[in-house]
């Protein structure tokens, strides 16, 4: 339990660091259109050009991560994505050893690279999107009060993850079955969600749309990244 707890705690820490903490003065202020293009273009490139496409996606996004000036954030995101990629490669290799769809170790590495690249193409926009853009868009379609639900949900995500981490860390001293720690965390998160929704309901009618200050340097960088991916697509 202690080791499993530590592992889950590290994963939750990486997720919160990777998806909720970085770029509030930089890439989260870029225009969302460019970064949203990166996901479909990156996936298409990995699908159409296999390892070569994956290498291009990795290189392009690695440049963006390096330019972020936040190595802790970049490493968290990379490390988080390495896990499913390594799992895909390892399970393919295991199946190969069992005689189901044989692959070579090089092919297993290629699987890992493609999974990682596709994951990065999805995770980059997800980790750098500004929820205020989604709020403003929804506020235009409905009303600022209703759109505030998006922000309440976004606020709850890191809080919920940290609650799970706290529950697992606490349980690591008691050594109970892992599911009971998760049950306690779920109860705490639900209680918290109820409180957030209640407070949001009260405050939401007085919220207004927010004029976002754009970072044009990052908009250009992400547009350039999308353009490179698009250019290598055919």
């Amino acid at each position: 339990m202690r080791r499993l707890g530590r592992l889950i705690s590290i994963l939750v820490g990486l997720s919160v660091r990777g998806f909720f903490e970085a770029g509030w003065t930089g890439f989260r202020r870029s225009h969302p259109a460019a970064k949203l293009l990166i996901a479909p273009l990156g996936i298409a490139l990995v699908y159409l050009h296999a390892a070569k496409g994956a290498a291009i996606v990795e290189a392009v996004i690695a440049v963006l991560l390096a330019l972020s000036g936040d190595p802790g954030w970049a490493l968290s995101l990379e490390a988080l994505l390495l896990l499913p990629a390594a799992w895909a490669a390892a399970s393919s290799l295991a199946l190969s050893i069992l005689g189901v769809s044989p692959i070579t170790p090089t092919q297993a590495l290629e699987i890992m690279l493609r999974y990682h690249a596709a994951g990065l193409a999805i995770a980059y926009p997800a980790a750098t999107i500004n929820p205020m853009d989604a709020y403003n868009a929804a506020a235009r379609l409905t009303s600022p009060g209703r759109a505030a639900a998006i922000l309440a949900a976004y606020r709850l995500l890191p809080h919920g993850l940290n609650t799970f981490r706290e529950a697992i860390e606490t349980a690591s001293t008691k050594n109970p079955p892992i599911h009971s720690a998760l049950a306690a965390a779920t109860a705490a998160v639900l209680e918290e969600a109820e409180g957030v929704i209640e407070a949001a309901k009260y405050r939401a009618p007085r919220t207004r749309r927010v004029r976002l200050e754009r970072d044009w340097r990052w908009t250009l960088l992400e547009a350039a990244a999308a353009a490179i991916l698009a250019a290598t697509l055919p």
Binding site: N130, R155, A200
Partner: peptide, 19 residues
Amino acid sequence: EPWRAILGPTPRYDLELSG
């Protein structure tokens, strides 16, 4: 629990939401 009344992801946006 005062943090339940905070909506914005950062203090800047939270304050701007209320003006």
